[in-house]
């Protein structure tokens, strides 16, 4: 069983293959914002590296968004057409949650922030819940059939103004934290660049002295098809499989013209 995973929601495209054992291989494009041109060539390069053909693919997974509208559409359109031509089913991986797999041995809160322009970020906050196998090594942990993706959603994925997001984070952290325990939040995503200072200021404000903020290292900061593949494998095990006709983008925002029309009426 092989799953092909596609990630095109950010500036750089990547694709990954994962098998039942959880073995992942990745191929990424070096070019920015050139997904339409590069996607099929990097899929082809990845398959050749693994000595596989596209006909060996049993499921096509895609990072469904949020992110760049155009990027999401290239990924979803390609995934749907690959699935249609192969006669296989698809797996829709929520892009924000896929960051859990960037840090599967992390106990703190994972908060991806994507620059959504108009002073907003697409964001959500998630945390692994450890009830089984916490002592096992990463690979064993991920390949175990008994492993259930167990995480909690602290802030639901949506488009937020940054202060609004931080306020939500603070509220849930206060509810979650028992007594004087410090909560750790690690931010991921391309929103770090424009918003890092604001986030640090927020942490330093007196209200938040039991919140510790970290920023993911450059090499694991952005979207990555390996994590999409890992989450897709988990979805496959849980039976979260879709017909290509039900594979839809998760834009998390209406088209500008639609929003304006609604405002008028």
């Amino acid at each position: 069983m092989n799953i092909l995973a596609i990630e095109t929601t950010e500036a750089k495209a990547s694709v990954a293959l994962i098998n039942e054992k959880g073995e992942v291989s990745l191929e990424a494009s070096d070019e920015k914002m050139n997904h339409l041109q590069n996607l099929i060539p990097i899929i082809d390069a990845l398959l050749k590296k693994r000595e596989l053909s596209i006909d060996d693919i049993n499921y096509v997974a895609v990072s469904e968004g949020p992110g760049s509208f155009t990027g999401i559409r290239i990924g979803v359109a390609s995934a749907r057409a690959l699935a249609q031509a192969l006669g296989v089913k698809t797996i829709a991986v929520p892009t924000l949650q896929s960051f859990l797999y960037h840090a599967y041995d992390y106990n703190g809160i994972i908060c991806p922030i994507f620059d959504a322009r108009r002073n907003q970020v697409y964001s959500g906050a998630y945390q692994w819940v450890r009830n089984e196998f916490p002592e096992k090594s990463k690979n064993e942990y991920l390949s175990s059939k008994k492993f259930q993706s167990s995480y909690k959603e602290l802030v639901a994925g949506d488009a937020y103004d940054l202060p609004q997001l931080l306020e939500k984070l603070r509220t849930v952290l206060l509810e979650e934290s028992n007594e004087r325990m410090t909560s750790e939040v690690t931010f991921f995503g391309d929103g770090i660049i424009p918003y890092k200072k604001q986030i640090i200021d927020w942490q330093n404000s007196s209200l938040n002295d039991n919140i510790r903020v970290l920023f993911a290292d450059d090499d694991i900061r952005l979207q990555n098809a390996s994590s999409v593949a890992r989450m897709a494998l988990e979805y496959y095990r849980e039976g979260k499989i879709k017909s290509l006709y039900d594979l839809k983008p998760a834009y998390m925002r209406k088209a500008e013209a639609e929003r304006k029309l609604e405002e008028k009426s």
């Binding site: 339409l36 899929i43 596209i54 006909d55 559409r73 290239i74 359109a77 390609s78 031509a85």
Partner: peptide, 18 residues
Amino acid sequence: VGALLIGLATAKSMAYVL
């Protein structure tokens, strides 16, 4: 461009598989 790329991504993916 956003409209064109839906047809193109679809056509490319299908041509690749077929």
